[in-house]
């Protein structure tokens, strides 16, 4: 198959392609979410230690996964945009940040609401929670930097640098926090889950994670379309759209 992949790297082509892909991802996300919620509440058995409170896991873990994946993907596209000067990849990177920050916030929030009944405290300075909090700061830094720069190309490149510096730092931060946490054993709470997790729980978690993926892709595509329109509002193909020339 001879597909010219570079064709899809043009914002104009991607705009229409994304428009056709969004309904697909939306439908799949809704279906997966329905199945995932059904499993989470009606199939997964009551946990022997945590009773029903553990059901928070079905949003907590997918949100935490997404927060990390999305940061990596964002840095990847931002880096591609910086290295090859491709505008579209930088736009995708900027479109990923708000969704990533939203999932990071959700991971922290659900972590707190799970921690309160289980550990008796809304917040513990556990290695994972603390790293997640710093991840949120990194997302906020990326978005504020891009928002402060008026020139879109400079914003893209500056964002790419800070995203890449963040990627180098995340493992260092994680291991530092873990070291710090083991040093202060008094305050730490073991997060270790029961050794064998029921299959239904695992399935539910995976399906919810897939739903979150599809949801993220749909959101990112719509946001990318907005960014394309904002930046290309003076180009010929957008003017064609204005005159009502249908093109698909």
């Amino acid at each position: 198959m001879a597909i010219n992949w570079f064709k899809y790297a043009s914002p104009a082509t991607f705009y229409f392609l994304a428009g056709r892909m969004i309904p697909f991802f939306t439908v799949v996300a809704v279906l997966l979410l329905l199945v995932g919620l059904y499993i989470s509440f009606f199939v997964a058995p009551t946990d022997f230690q945590q009773s029903e409170a553990y059901r928070i896991i079905f949003i907590h873990v997918p949100a935490a996964w997404m927060s990390m994946f999305l940061y990596l993907i964002m840095a990847f596209w931002a880096g591609i945009g910086l290295a090859f000067n491709t505008r579209l990849s930088s736009m995708v990177a900027s479109a990923i940040a708000p969704t990533g920050a939203m999932f990071t916030f959700l991971a922290l929030w659900t972590g707190a609401w799970w921690g309160k009944p289980m550990w008796g405290a809304w917040w513990v300075w556990d290695a994972r929670l603390t790293s997640e909090l710093i991840l949120l700061f990194l997302y906020i830094g990326f978005m504020s930097l891009q928002a402060a720069i008026d020139d879109p190309r400079r914003a893209d490149k500056a964002g790419a640098i800070i995203a890449l510096v963040g990627v180098v730092n995340i493992p260092i931060i994680y291991f530092s926090v873990q070291w710090w946490n083991t040093l202060h054993q008094g305050a730490s709470v073991s997060l270790v889950q029961s050794p064998k997790m029921a299959t239904a729980m695992l399935t539910g978690m995976l399906i919810m994670a897939l739903a979150a993926w599809m949801y993220s892709i749909a959101m990112i595509l719509i946001r990318t379309r907005s960014i394309i329109l904002e930046r290309e509002s003076r180009t010929a193909w957008v003017s064609e759209l204005k005159e009502g020339v249908t093109r698909s």
């Binding site: 939203m102 659900t110 949801y215």
Partner: peptide
Amino acid sequence: SMGGYGLYVWGSYGVALLCV
């Protein structure tokens, strides 16, 4: 009531729904 943990379970799911 979620086995007595209703506040925490629905607090989490509710905010997740709001965010989305």
